[in-house]
Amino acid sequence: MLLIHCPYCEEERPELEFRHAGEAHIARPTDMAAMSDEDFEKFFFIRSNPKGVIYERWRHVHGCARFFNAVRDTVTDKFVMTYKAGEPQPKKLPGAGK
């Protein structure tokens, strides 16, 4: 069971309190109705599924109930960092470049 740092509770909490919520930084377009089929496909169906660093959403569902974002390495299953929903995608990661 992982420990996950909740950016709202400001501490590490056990994974049992959390729920994964898919890839992060996929903003819902403001003009949904006008989207092309191709753009909708990319928006709704296509996910990056990288080997390595992934930006994803989690919800501290059995804690503060907030959705937040996390950077996780899919190879090591280690969290690089977490940050609040709405904050920009971090450009520089702690310990990156290794």
């Binding site: 509770c9 909490r13 049992l16 309190e17 059995h62 804690g63 503060c64 109930a65």
Partner: peptide, 10 residues
């Protein structure tokens, strides 16, 4: 105070 889990419930 905290919301958390106990066994299978919140």
């Amino acid at each position: 105070a905290s919301r958390t889990v106990l066994g299978k419930v919140e």
